[in-house]
């Protein structure tokens, strides 16, 4: 029988990384992701891996840059303010096409904000928090089990495309304990890395860099990046579809808020509308096509977030005015309740 473990989302992410073959972790403490760094401090040495509590988030992500350039599976984790600090290097990693995993257990912002749960880093995660034309792949779990599952996938996808991948959780998923089963017999899809820095014995030297100072070179490189991003958009979209076919009101929510929306659908008995839900699992690439398809038959879409309205902009871009797109959100640690969402549905008034 598969062994169930009662773990926090933070711990589940950490153990899943070990199973995925990650042996190099660099991080800096910040609430609410401390259980992740704490877990790996003990666990990494047990499997012969490297764990460094770095002097800053900047140093941590740059150590990740080094280990990724050296060809290893590597990761860092933090929460919102710490992720802001890492953005420069995330841009460099996208520009140097280095695979890695970054876990963000979001907390309230802006600034020091608070330590309660939030989804206000959506823009930062999917629009590129650093400088330049780049994308990182963003996966958003809604349960502790899914956190573990997406961490395995994140390493494979990162290797496949030579691109950073972020697992975007929130304080609630990081802190929440749920039963989780680890797929220890899982086969990791580790890509060959002929580009990695290993010493140039028997081959031409490798250079890992994002600098293209000769006029014209950078545009050629950017074009290549955009072609890669197109391939990712074509192949890596993930979502959960809950009764959207034929639904006249569709809720769109990811992560923690999607669980509340499921509760709403479960409780909803008025019979006036047929309710459905779309849960984007990959936030970039975003399930644009699916939402467009929904908007062709739905009377209304409501996006539910723990933010002042961020993902709703991507929903509107997908819908292109085919149906009204409403928004309900809470900020600063407020979590939308089923009652509040039901009220919002009632207010649609049709």
């Amino acid at each position: 029988m598969e062994t169930k473990h009662l773990l926090t989302g933070n711990e589940a992410a950490a153990e899943a990384a070990i199973i995925a073959g990650c042996r190099y972790y660099y991080g800096y403490p910040i609430t609410p992701q401390n259980e992740l760094i704490n877990y790996l401090a003990t666990r990494m040495p047990q499997v012969g891996g490297t764990f460094i509590q770095a002097e800053s988030e900047l140093a941590a992500i740059n150590m990740v840059y080094g280990s990724a350039a050296a060809g290893a599976r590597t990761m860092t984790s933090s929460s919102s303010p710490g992720i802001s600090l890492k953005q420069e290097c995330i841009s460099y990693m996208a520009g140097s096409e280095l695979p890695c995993l970054i876990v963000n257990m979001q907390r309230g912002g802006p600034g020091l904000g608070d330590i309660s749960t939030s989804q206000a880093d959506y823009f930062q995660a999917v629009k590129g928090g650093g400088h330049g034309d780049y994308r990182i792949i963003v996966l958003a779990p809604s349960t502790v089990q899914e956190t573990a599952d997406l961490v395995y996938d994140a390493f494979d996808i990162a290797d496949k495309y030579r691109n950073p991948v972020m697992v975007l959780g929130d304080a609630q998923i990081g802190q929440l304990m749920e039963p989780v089963v680890f797929h220890k017999e899982r086969k990791n899809n580790v890509a060959d890395k002929p580009w990695a820095l290993t010493g140039s014995k028997g081959r031409k030297k490798n250079i890992v860099k994002s600098f293209y100072p000769v006029k014209g070179e950078l545009e050629v490189f950017n074009k290549k990046l955009q072609e890669k991003y197109k391939r990712i958009e074509d192949n890596e979209v993930l979502f959960e579809d809950l009764n959207t076919n034929g639904a006249d009101v569709v809720l769109v929510a990811y992560g923690t808020t999607s669980r509340i929306c499921k509760d709403v659908i479960n409780k909803y008995e008025s019979g006036n509308h047929q309710l459905g839900m779309l849960r984007p699992i990959s936030l970039w690439p975003f399930p644009t096509k699916k939402i467009r398809e929904i908007s062709e038959s739905a009377k209304a879409i409501i996006t539910i977030e723990m933010s002042a309205g961020q993902m709703v902009e991507d929903v509107r871009l997908a819908v292109e005015g085919r149906c009204p797109v409403h928004f309900y959100g809470r900020t600063g640690g407020g979590i939308p309740t089923p009652k509040e969402i039901l009220k919002k549905i009632d207010e649609l008034g049709f």
Partner: peptide
């Protein structure tokens, strides 16, 4: 809370344990 969650998990039920956390 942890013991409660652990025990019911072992009895095959769904369970969530959401702690307060902080300073």
């Amino acid at each position: 809370g942890k013991l409660l969650a652990q025990s019911v998990m072992m009895n095959g039920k769904y369970v969530t344990f959401y702690p307060s956390y902080g300073t």
